[in-house]
Design a protein around this nucleic acid. Sequence first.
DNA 1: CGCCCTTTGAAGTGG
DNA 2: CCACTTCAAAGGGCG
Length: 401
Amino acid sequence: EMGAGREMGARRKMGGRRGARRPGGCFSGIPRPPHPSELPPYYPLSPGAVGQIPHPLGWLVPQQGQPVYSIPPGGFRHPYPALAMNASMSSLMSSRFSPHMVPPPTHGLHPSGIPHPTIVSPIVKQEPTQPSISPGGNSKSPVTVKKEEEKKPHIKKPLNAFMLYMKEMRAKVVAECTLKESAAINQILGRRWHSLSREEQAKYYELARKERQLHSQLYPTWSARDNYGKKKKRKREKLAQQQSHDTESSLASKSKKPCVQYLPAEKPCDSPASSHGSMLDSPATPSAALASPAAPAATHSEQAQPLSLTTKPEARAQLAVHSAAFLSGKAAAASSSSSSSSSSSLGSPPSLLSRPVPFTSVPSTALLASPPSFAAAVPSPQAALAVLQTQPLSLVTKPAD
DNA sequence: CGCCCTTTGAAGTGG
DNA sequence: CCACTTCAAAGGGCG
């Protein structure tokens, strides 16, 4: 029914302030942060800035006129090649990278001609200072608009935390099991994601935030809306169903996302999204979430979800096994070496810094509302064990050969 | 050949 | 504000 974003009133002008909403309460009012000066404190975006994360933003390190494309096993692509040449970016990084590392401005196209992951088009992205920012508003003639649209490269959405995580971990997961179907792999990744510690997730949230920042600097005028209707997704029917289902639950809890109150053992893995409301928004502080081992929601995600998806039986089996195996590892780590993350967190309450801050600069108020409930962070060994008990390891995973 | 599936998160629109 | 939708990646499956 009408599909909210589909037509979108043929690119309406955001009806005034529509869509100006920023979840994180960062740049309210403007679609994209126009001036770097308004951005929250810069992040070096250095490869090491995020700890162990190897590459996600490896492109930031240009070398001899060429960005370094740190390509992970799975093939990690360079997000913003052109970026390295951007003046604003260089200012962004200058404090961190020696001059010689910053290649001379090449005006867009990367010398190597490496395709831009976020730009799917032969045409290289235009400078942020593109015509669209024409003074006096955008009173472009239809023709102009059309023309622009024609040549306008497809700038992709910046990856969110989970997407970044997937990119990094996919290859590993694929290697660990015989599964290949992305749908199945993604399920595993989804559960793994939930099993990550707060700190672990935080890395990706921060990374994602940087990506967004970067993206907004590179493409100040870009809007996610630009990509609407380019993918022809029409699972609306299905979504409608799921949503109606959700609605039922939410009706009970009044607009709160259905909390994870499913049976420990079985739960038709049908409402992945529900994992959100796990903590309601009570935790308020990450430390609180941490401090309360109770955080039941924390464990649900990795539990023995039957995976009653459309996934094939074999796939499901593997998924289950894989999860169990993974959890067993987690459990083992937790019990034996008392996982550094959780122990350290518990021992010394993580400062807000370690918090997964999913959004950009976050005022104190936003902290309380922080969506990505990290309740689901600290996995409980018990849960893992439970899984193990429920699903004995019949390891389908590949031999480590 | 091209959409579907599947995941989470961000961001868009409409009410 | 809330609800809902789309799109990011990815790659086998499938019509």
